[in-house]
Amino acid sequence: MKPADKRAYDKDYANAKKTGKPFFPYAIFKDTIIAGLTVVSIIVLAIVVKVEVGEPVNPATTDFVPRPEWYFYFAFELLKIFANQDVLTPVIMATFMVPNIMIILLVVWPFIDRGPERRIWKRPFAMGLVVIVTGMLCYLTYLGAQTPAGVAKGGLPVSGLDEEATKGMAVYIANGCGSCHMVAGVGAPGPGPDLTNEGAKGWDNAKMVAWLKAPKAPMPSYASLSPADLEALATFVNGLGTKYK
């Protein structure tokens, strides 16, 4: 904004104030009504939709879809979008780049858009941004609110399993890997990548066990599983799409 524009605004605002009304009681009156209505609706919500107590924490079983509060669904969906494309757009895009760019843009926005214009119809770019960002947030939140696909409790449509792989599949199901991964269309579509063709990567079991113990974020570590279980799980996952279809 040029100095002349600043002076013009200061003068105009001083006029607006001079011909204005006192904060108390005019603004306070409106404020109190809206704030009061909001608090009343919170109390009504608390009475109508009672809070529940979930299952107690059990770090040994991950048989649970990790779902954040609804206002983080958009970030969660972002993870899913980037999860299956680890080459071109690594997960770091979703976990680090995109959120941080958004936060920085949010904070410094007034230093980017410095024009004096305030009228809505004269700021098509800013208004377009409002519509796009709000629309995207709403859409991602809506996607996140969809009930997740089954966590593969009933088993996976995979055949050709030998003894070790059958044990591995049991470990897979018992530990709720299906709450983040999909195999042959069963399980949640994210945040983890689809494992239907995981065997095609050609990893050996030692590499897979090391990965399971210390995976890349946001996947939690499975170091708490017994070595035998880890070995069976690695055999099962390493054969997906190749030996076991």
Partner: peptide
């Protein structure tokens, strides 16, 4: 609870 724990781990 389970939901809170695993969401926060992630």
């Amino acid at each position: 609870d389970q939901k809170a724990y695993w969401a926060t781990v992630v």
